[in-house]
Amino acid sequence: MPNRSIPPSRPADTKTRLLDAAEAQYIDSGYEAMSLRQITARANANLAAVNYHFGGKDALIHAMLTRRLDGLNANRLALLERFQSIHGAHLTCEHVLGAMFIPALQQSRCPEKSGPALLRLLGRAYTDPSPFIRGFLRSMYTDVAERFFAAFQTVLPHLPREELGWRLHFCIGSLSGILAGADTNSLIDDFTQGQRLNDPQLIGRLALIMVAALKAPPAAIKAPCPFQSMFAECEAAPGETLESDTAAQHALA
Rank of each mutant, 00 (worst) to 15 (best):
P129V: 14
Q193C: 07
L214M: 08
T241H: 07
M210I: 15
L122R: 02
P111R: 15
E32D: 15
P224Q: 02
P7A: 15
V144L: 13
R124W: 05
A151F: 02
A232L: 03
D183H: 11
D28C: 08
L47N: 11
A251T: 07
L18E: 04
L168N: 05
P200D: 13
R120T: 10
P226Q: 05
E163R: 11
R167F: 14
G55S: 05
L91C: 09
H95W: 07
P226S: 00
L168A: 10
L121T: 04
A49G: 14
G204Y: 07
A41C: 02
D190E: 07
R161H: 07
A237T: 00
N3S: 13
A220S: 07
N185D: 15
G98V: 03
R134K: 09
W166D: 04
L121N: 04
D189Q: 15
L60G: 06
Y52A: 12
G30D: 07
E146M: 12
L252Y: 08
N46P: 01
L79I: 04
A237I: 00
E243Y: 03
I102K: 13
M210K: 01
V96I: 05
D13C: 01
F148G: 06
R196G: 01
L187W: 11
T16I: 14
H62A: 01
A89F: 04
